[in-house]
């Protein structure tokens, strides 16, 4: 196994072009497990973990740009205000040690249907910035995943950053695991309100070959909120609206049976989580007028 340790980001991009089979490693929380446990033997590793330029984040024009080295702990400790759903999701990732090393970009690169960061990134309309010697392109997260553990990255491309719109409304994330911590999602759900644009975003994890949005559900909810004048006045949502949203979220799922749980349970749980997260987010809006305009 070859091991490449570029000095700079530019070197890393160049090395990836020269060695398209090189597998990037940052926190190593997925890759090392695959090597140690699953016997995966990449011909070459491209180590990005020491590149300081990837470790920072900045906010400009209402968007938070997370460098590819930003960890779950970073998000949890510093970005809960701007990225609440991603922060709640980060808190559910593994153990403190895993959160200290694992990165948001690494979660995208692995592209597991169960990746905890994915539903919040989908719900908030995040964008993945990828780079190669051919240039930079921005891929909406909704178009990033192509299959189980597959994404749109070309062999010469590396993830440079993840751009996440800062919250302009309440957000929620909920994850069912059989254990109360340190568990891979049996099913997960994220919900984000963008009040100024009157938009609702959703993300579902572990219930389809890739993380998915519940487009019917968001369209339905936006329509109901429009029709009832709820954007202007944050009254209690009718139970029918909450249930209608939850049914459509559940209907979006295409889960499988596996060792972590049966498909039917995943659908059932999604319905419950959609109902609950909608109520929590909406009640935050009712009690906290700051997102109203």
């Amino acid at each position: 196994m070859d091991y490449l340790r570029p000095r700079t980001w530019q070197d890393a991009v160049a090395l990836k072009t020269e060695n398209p089979a090189a597998v990037p490693i940052n926190g190593g929380t997925d890759l090392m497990v695959e090597i140690k446990f699953a016997g995966r033997r990449p011909a070459c590793l491209l180590d990005l973990s020491h590149l300081q330029v990837l470790k920072g984040w900045r906010k400009s024009n209402g968007t938070v740009e997370l460098g590819a080295g930003v960890t779950y702990t970073d998000v949890l400790e510093h970005l809960g205000g701007d990225l609440p759903a991603l922060a709640i999701a980060s808190r559910t990732v593994g153990s403190p040690q895993i959160r200290n090393r694992g990165t948001i970009a690494g979660n995208l690169a692995t592209a597991s249907p169960a990746g905890d960061a994915h539903p919040p990134l989908l719900a908030t309309g995040a964008t993945v910035r990828v780079e190669s010697m051919r240039g930079v392109r921005d891929v909406p997260v909704g178009r990033f995943f192509t299959g189980p553990k597959q994404n749109v990255l070309e062999p010469d491309e590396l993830i440079r950053a993840v751009l996440v719109p800062a919250a302009r409304g309440p957000q929620q994330f909920s994850k069912v695991g059989t254990r109360n911590a340190m568990v891979i999602a049996v099913v997960s759900f994220a919900l984000a309100f963008d009040i100024p644009s009157r938009h609702v975003g959703t993300g579902i994890g572990s219930a389809a070959p890739t993380p998915i949005e519940a487009a019917d559900a968001t369209a339905y909810l936006e329509q109901e909120l429009d029709r009832g004048g709820y954007w202007e006045e944050h009254r209690d949502l009718p139970a029918g609206t909450v249930d209608g949203f939850a049914e459509r979220v559940a209907a979006a799922a295409r889960p499988i049976n596996d060792v972590r749980g049966p498909a039917g349970y995943r659908v059932h749980a999604l319905r419950v989580m959609a109902r609950r997260t909608l109520r929590w987010a909406w009640s935050a809006l009712e009690t906290d007028g700051t997102h109203a305009h």
């Binding site: 559910t92 929620q172 909920s174 069912v176 109360n180 911590a181 568990v183 989580m273 609950r276 929590w280």
Partner: peptide
Amino acid sequence: LRRLPGGVGNTTHGEA
């Protein structure tokens, strides 16, 4: 959350 079913998974705030 750590004292509720589902723990940090944020699955209930007391519902059910």
